[in-house]
């Protein structure tokens, strides 16, 4: 007989015991572990999903900030550009003003120097002219220049026209002080008396005359009246020289100025 009932019963019991033991040691723990892992994975997926939402929000926030930053940067950039442009124009204007001021100062300085130079030139030229004239007169006509000047002055006094005589008389009456005759040299007594005599003749009465030496009058003699004067000096001759020199100087200065402005 192939079947042994004792063995069958024993095997049934064995099988039931095995079912229990495997349930206890195999299926139970494995299923619990699988369930636990699935739960953890689900939690992690949920967590990941939540984090993804947070990350999406953060990314959106970041993109928005980036956009705002770019807009703000563009705005600031254009503002700075405008400010720089304004500042550049200000600086250019300032520099231009400074240059203009410097040029003006330079012109003024040149003007002053020119005037000083002309004054000096006039004085030197007058003196030199006097010296040359004096020498020439002495050498050629044996005549003293000063005496000749006084002589010419007296002739000038004696040949006054009607208006000048009228002015002379008014001056004599209006001026409380003496009439001043200024000369570049000291007038000796005799020529001085001749001058007084000539004045008296023209004024038609007593005239108090005061003689003064003034080095400003280059080689000349002068009688100052109210509103006019009667004189003879080299100044009149020097006027022409001064005018021609002035014209030459101005033309030179303009050329220099043009060259500077070109640079």
């Amino acid at each position: 007989m192939l079947i042994d009932w004792f063995t069958v019963i024993a095997q049934v019991i064995n099988f039931l015991v095995l079912v229990y033991l495997l349930k206890r040691f195999l299926y139970g723990p494995i299923i619990r572990a699988i369930d636990e892992r699935e739960r953890k994975i689900a939690l992690r997926l949920e967590e990941a999903s939540r984090k993804k939402e947070v990350a999406d929000l953060e990314a959106e926030n970041y993109r928005r900030k980036n956009r705002e930053f770019n807009e703000r940067r563009e705005e600031m950039f254009s503002q700075i550009k405008e400010e720089v442009e304004v500042r550049r124009k200000d600086l250019i204007n300032e520099a231009r003003n400074q240059v203009d001021a410097g040029r003006t100062k330079w012109y003024e300085a040149i003007q002053r120097e020119r005037e000083a130079f002309l004054q000096d030139l006039r004085r030197r030229a007058g003196r030199q002219t006097c010296a040359i004239s004096r020498r020439a007169l002495k050498d050629m006509a044996d005549v003293d220049l000063e005496n000749q000047i006084i002589h010419v002055f007296i002739e000038r006094l004696l040949s006054l026209n009607r208006d000048e005589i009228k002015a002379l008389k008014e001056s004599i009456h209006q001026l409380p002080q003496k009439i001043s005759v200024r000369s570049a040299f000291k007038i000796p007594g005799k020529p001085a008396g001749e001058i007084k005599k000539a004045l008296r003749n023209q004024a038609g009465g007593h005239v108090d005359v005061q003689f003064e030496v003034s080095p400003d009058l280059i080689c000349g003699i002068e009688l100052k009246l109210e509103g006019s004067r009667i004189s003879w000096n080299v100044d009149d001759y020097l006027e022409t020289l001064e005018e021609s020199l002035l014209a030459a100087l101005e033309s030179k200065a303009e050329k220099v100025a043009d060259r500077l402005s070109d640079k």
Binding site: Q11, N14, V17, L18, L21, A33, E36, R37
Partner: peptide, 26 residues
């Protein structure tokens, strides 16, 4: 029959115990 059944049972239960002793849920 019974002897080898016990052997198989012992092997299966012992292996199960060994494997499920330190189960990882990670």
């Amino acid at each position: 029959t019974i002897f080898f059944t016990w052997c198989v049972m012992a092997l299966m239960v012992f292996s199960s115990w060994l494997i499920t002793r330190k189960l990882s849920t990670e």
